[in-house]
Design a protein around this nucleic acid. Structure first.
Length: 482
RNA sequence: GACCCUAUCGUCUAGCCUGGUCCAGGACACUACCCUUUCAAGGUAGUAACACGGGUUCAAAUCCCGUUGGGGUCGCCA
């Protein structure tokens, strides 16, 4: 069994691609002799880049996907970059030309556009002009230097193609769906449908697993297989991942729905395990109502029956839920180590950064309180931010007159009581005495006064760790006018 | 528009093949309560779905037909 993931390196790996790669990988590894191949489809010279290829490799590895053959590690049926296989495509094109299964088409873009417009037909079909041209006449035009593309002669194909998709009943695709399509560009590069079919055959792919948007490409590729008398692989078209635009209209998930780059999510602090776990739940159900599982666990019980047939919507809240769950499962030490990557001299002040170890317990508190690791610096601001003015949540708390009245009394008391080496329990008792306050109003007043926030770790944790002068700076910054 | 795919809570889905155990189960989200002198987390409970219309059958979410809805594709992009 041999399957591939074949991205075109025109940007980061996106969510849909990651899901396709994950499923291909799982499908292969669920079989003892399965080989997973990475093929780079860089036939679009303008948009492809080596940087994108590297970004995609990085994202795949981060998701735990490793390939047996690919451009970096080689393999028996390479090369694995389509731009390095140009002579192979050329040979196959020549065969088709000789057999008259394909022909040179000399129409320019303008001519094509004009014919389409003036044809008046609902579906435009190319005229016979170049399809029926003799070899000599065509050669003549080539010699004159006229640019041309090479098109597959679809009129020679069967009237319909039937194939068995692993997820569906037989799919019947009428050949009328497509006109003679370009398989070879005027710049000497093959097009996707041609290169993919040739490569899948030459690289001996047994299965092709991809998104449902490729269903109509399957027809074209089947036609290429047919032209060469090759036996096509088995196909599986997965339901799409959908997004909603601002108006709530659904469509295939893409950039306009927000972040779709795998690397961006990982950089923001989504754990790879959480990310892959969520992606794996879209269009596939792990049996027995189990929600949390690893890629390996999915592989060990992998079965086509668990695929669903309809599209699934991308739900970022559920992704974050998974992330929170995985975060909570981490050990304190592991979490702290990970947190340090987000608490750098760039994201937190130097004096706090240098005291990171002191605050370990407070930082670990956030294990169960954040969705994304990248939120950490802003949450921790209550420890180190001198806070020149009241935060919005503080203002909200103080918008209640009674709250505000208590708050200013507490602030006065704290200003007197907070001094070096003070112990929170003592300060608390003295504030209680001085102000006569108790309960929620007392604690919230102290919390807001000292942290400029209405939530956070235990007050004692904060007061006993944060240097006194940090606390005083903040206390002095607040006054009744603000 | 043509062709193809698809249809269970707001969302991800179980159940459908092998009709009855389903006045439809789980999870996310949401709401309420408990816990808690903060916010969360945790615990408990709750709201919420078989697209519609015809068949077949003693019986249909489950089988058949049609309608409607949604999506995808229609490039010298992949």
């Amino acid at each position: 069994m041999r399957v591939r993931f074949a991205p075109s390196p025109t940007g980061d790996l996106h969510l849909g691609g990651a899901r396709t790669a994950l499923m291909n990988y799982a499908f292969t590894k669920a079989h003892s002799n399965g080989k997973f191949i990475l093929r780079i489809e860089d036939t679009d010279q303008e948009r492809s880049s080596r940087a994108s290829e590297e970004a995609i490799s990085k994202a795949l590895k981060a998701c735990g996907i490793l390939w047996d053959e690919g451009p970096d590690c080689g393999g028996a049926l390479g090369p694995y970059r389509q731009s390095e296989r140009l002579d192979i495509y050329k040979n196959h094109i020549d065969t088709l030309l000789e057999n008259r299964k394909a022909y040179r088409c000399f129409f320019t873009d303008d001519e094509l556009a004009q014919m389409k417009e003036t044809s008046g037909q609902k579906i435009f079909r190319l005229p016979d002009t170049y399809r029926s041209l003799t070899q000599d006449a065509a050669q003549n035009l080539v010699d004159q230097g006229k640019p041309y593309t090479i098109r597959l002669d679809v009129s020679q194909c069967a009237s319909e193609y039937t194939f068995k998709d692993m997820l569906k009943d037989s799919v019947v695709l009428p050949s009328l769906m497509v006109d003679d399509f370009v398989i070879y560009r005027s710049n000497g590069f093959p097009t996707y449908n041609f290169a993919a079919a040739v490569d899948d055959h030459l690289m001996e792919m047994t299965h092709v697993i991809r998104g449902e948007e490729h269903l109509s490409n399957t027809l074209r590729q089947l036609m290429v297989y047919d032209a060469f008398d090759w036996v096509p692989p088995t196909f599986l078209h997965m339901p799409l991942i959908m997004g909603r635009d601002a108006e709530g209209n659904p469509s295939k998930l893409s950039k306009r729905h927000g972040d779709v780059s795998v690397l961006t999510f990982l950089e923001k602090g989504v754990l790879p395990e959480a990310f892959t776990n969520y992606l794996l739940t879209l269009g596939y159900t792990y049996p027995n109502n189990v929600e949390m599982y690893s890629l390996d666990e999915l592989i060990s019980g992998f079965d086509l029956q668990y695929f669903s047939k309809s599209a699934a919507f991308w739900d970022i809240k559920k992704l974050y839920w998974y992330n929170t769950e995985y975060l909570k499962q981490m050990s304190d030490d592991d979490f702290f180590d990970l947190a340090k990557k987000y608490l750098t001299p760039e994201t937190v002040p130097e004096n706090f950064y240098n005291a990171l170890e002191t605050f370990k317990a407070c930082i670990v508190y956030y294990k169960a309180h954040i969705e994304l690791l990248s939120e950490l610096p802003e949450h921790l601001a209550l420890f180190f931010d001198p806070a020149q003015e009241l935060s919005n949540e503080s203002k909200t708390y103080l918008s209640d007159a009674e709250n505000a009245e208590a708050f200013w009394r507490v602030q006065d008391a704290l200003l007197e009581l907070i001094r070096p080496d003070c112990v929170f329990s003592e300060v608390l008792n003295q504030v209680k005495e001085k102000t006569g306050l108790k309960g929620k109003r007392l604690f919230m007043s102290i919390r807001v006064a000292l942290t400029n926030a209405s939530s956070g770790p235990e007050l004692s944790e904060i007061v006993d760790r944060v240097p006194t002068d940090w606390l005083l700076t903040r206390l002095r910054a607040f006054n009744r006018e603000s």
